[in-house]
Amino acid sequence: MILLEWLQYPFVWSYQQTVEKLSLPKQKIFWAYVFLFIPLIFFLYIRIYPTIQAFGMSFYDWNPLAVEQEFIGFDNYAEIFEDVQKPALTSPTRAAFENTVKYVVIGMPLQLVLSLSIALMLSEIRRFVDFYRVIFFLPFVTSTIAVAWVFRWLYQPQHGLFNVVLAAFSLPTQDFLDSRGQALFSILAVVIWQGLGFAVIIFLAGLKQIPRTYYEAAEVDGSSRWQSFWNITLPLLNPSIVYLVVLQTISFLRMFAPVLAMTSQGDGGPLNSTTTVVLRVFREAFGTRSKMGYSAALTVVLFAVILMVTIIQLRLTTRSVD
């Protein structure tokens, strides 16, 4: 204990000699870097460094089983470029890019609107609130593989619950996962279903940060519920919305596990209709004949796309990041 106290003197002394002599803004900068030190080291070493390694692989005919890797320059990228020009039916890569765009463009807004609606309704009601919250959280705590299996049963062409219900209302039964036209939407529905709880909680936490007095004041001013929503709720919910838009976009762009678990053999079928870029990355990297270099190149392309989308989103949604 005495040792500890003694040990800190040089630090205290040097701190007093250096940092405390700085102006206040400069002191703040100093502390910002100190606080960020460990996270920065972590991200650089555990995330960025392996990412750079993976980027490096994209210039090789990289095979994990091989000792020496052959440098092939931009050949992997050229192959991707060729593959995306083929029809999606016979080119999984082309299909993967097409489908990934569909997942994001349809999935992200739908999930956002649904979860915000649910959160607003939840903050409105007074009884059974806990009960509903737990229910909306159920899918989120259930393992993806179990969820996938259950939905495969619900989607069954013959005895699946959905088709039984359709038949009961004398509506035509659907093929769902077994059809090229519906499979993607069937999977998307499950993903939205499973992620709803997360988004609802984020919105609820955001809504709780809005002081009730704002609404009371608005009510006194005679503004309608709809006006309050536009003028108070949405603007003050901005941090939550930005967060969810950016993160859900990224997560839809990186869609993988549900497709792996819900398609036969995890192949992203039928006929590539549900496959995604990350599923292709995984399949090409760990197939019988590994094409990890090609996978790495796909990763780089995906990375570039996500980075671009994220920067644009951050620019548009937060006018004052700095």
Binding site: L89, T90, R180, Q265, D267, G269, P270, L271, N272, G287, T288, R289
Partner: peptide, 18 residues
Amino acid sequence: FFIDESAQRQVLIDAYEL
């Protein structure tokens, strides 16, 4: 004699789907 068993199987799975 397979050179890429999983990919070669997938080709016939896809043909059958069509």
